[in-house]
């Protein structure tokens, strides 16, 4: 395991000896890592490596042993979350606007929409170039549209936006070019809004292009550090098996 590089800054999230069990199965074992503030941290690893579980532990959604602390914040930080899957089907009348308002207003939607909440929702959708989707049912959106809406919803909040943004495989279901655009947008937002972003991803080239810190998991911590150093042939082999090799490909469409 690579040693944790010394960081001068106070981390946004500190994970100390996190172990998660589901029944008798150990999903995560003794994971210790710091998530630096104000940059993108990517969590990578094979299927079943415990990546989503790690996000859930940060949120407090699964019981765990060890400690999750937020040294960079005086109070508990606020979170935005972009999930991998949604429990909404094509037949649901829940619109994109409804979805954002569920977060933004306490008044039940059957008693009407608050103007201020609606304005905030429009603002966030506009920032993601998704304003035109406001009245469409959430269940019928394409992969790319849905990711923009989920990101807009994650950035919306009653008391301003989130401090920490957690994304679970946000680029799954969209093509490579869409994935690259999404990652670039995420990098821009993280910098503009001073967010601490934690991103679970399969796409190592997107990770190496935009993530400042990489956490490699395969139930246990396989490595943590800056992207270029951590995504090495050695770590990849440890995570995905000896037959794997590192092949960074270019997502940018050819010009001309």
């Amino acid at each position: 395991m690579m040693p944790e590089p010394a960081t001068e800054e106070i981390p946004a999230v500190r994970l100390a000896n996190i172990t998660v069990r589901l029944g008798n199965r150990v999903v995560l074992e003794d994971v210790t890592a710091d998530v630096p503030a104000g940059v993108i941290t990517a969590v990578i690893g094979p299927n079943g490596a415990g990546k989503t579980t790690l996000l859930k532990a940060i949120l407090g959604l699964v019981p765990y042993e060890g400690r999750v602390t937020f040294p960079g914040f005086k109070n508990r930080p606020s979170f935005g979350y972009v999930p991998q899957a949604l429990g909404v089907d094509e037949g649901s009348p829940l619109t994109v606007m409804d979805f954002l308002l569920l977060k933004l207003q306490r008044r039940p939607l059957w008693l009407g929409r608050r103007r201020s909440a609606r304005d905030e929702a429009r603002h966030q959708l506009g920032a993601m170039r998704a304003e035109n989707l406001a009245d469409r049912p959430l269940g019928v959106l394409s992969g790319g549209e849905r990711q923009r809406v989920l990101l807009a919803a994650a950035l919306a909040g009653r008391n301003g936006g989130p401090d920490i943004l957690l994304l679970d495989e946000p680029a799954s279901g969209i093509d490579a070019v869409g994935g690259e655009l999404f990652a670039a947008l995420l990098a821009e937002l993280t910098e503009e809004r001073g967010l601490t972003t934690v991103l679970v991803s399969h796409d190592l080239s997107v990770v190496s292009a935009h993530a400042r810190r990489v956490v490699c998991l395969n139930r246990r911590l396989m490595g943590v550090g800056c992207a270029s150093e951590t995504i090495s042939a050695e770590t990849i082999a440890a995570m995905y098996g000896r037959d794997s090799s590192l092949f960074l490909h270019d997502h940018h469409p050819k010009e001309g």
């Binding site: 959604l61 979170f79 979350y81 409804d98 569920l102 039940p108 939607l109 059957w110 994650a154």
Partner: peptide, 21 residues
């Protein structure tokens, strides 16, 4: 429903998003 309608609908869409909120 007056108290929990929004939270219940959000939890149905994604418990993680609801928890984060």
């Amino acid at each position: 429903s007056a108290i929990f309608f929004n939270r219940l609908a959000l939890t149905a869409v994604s418990p993680e998003v609801a928890r984060a909120s």
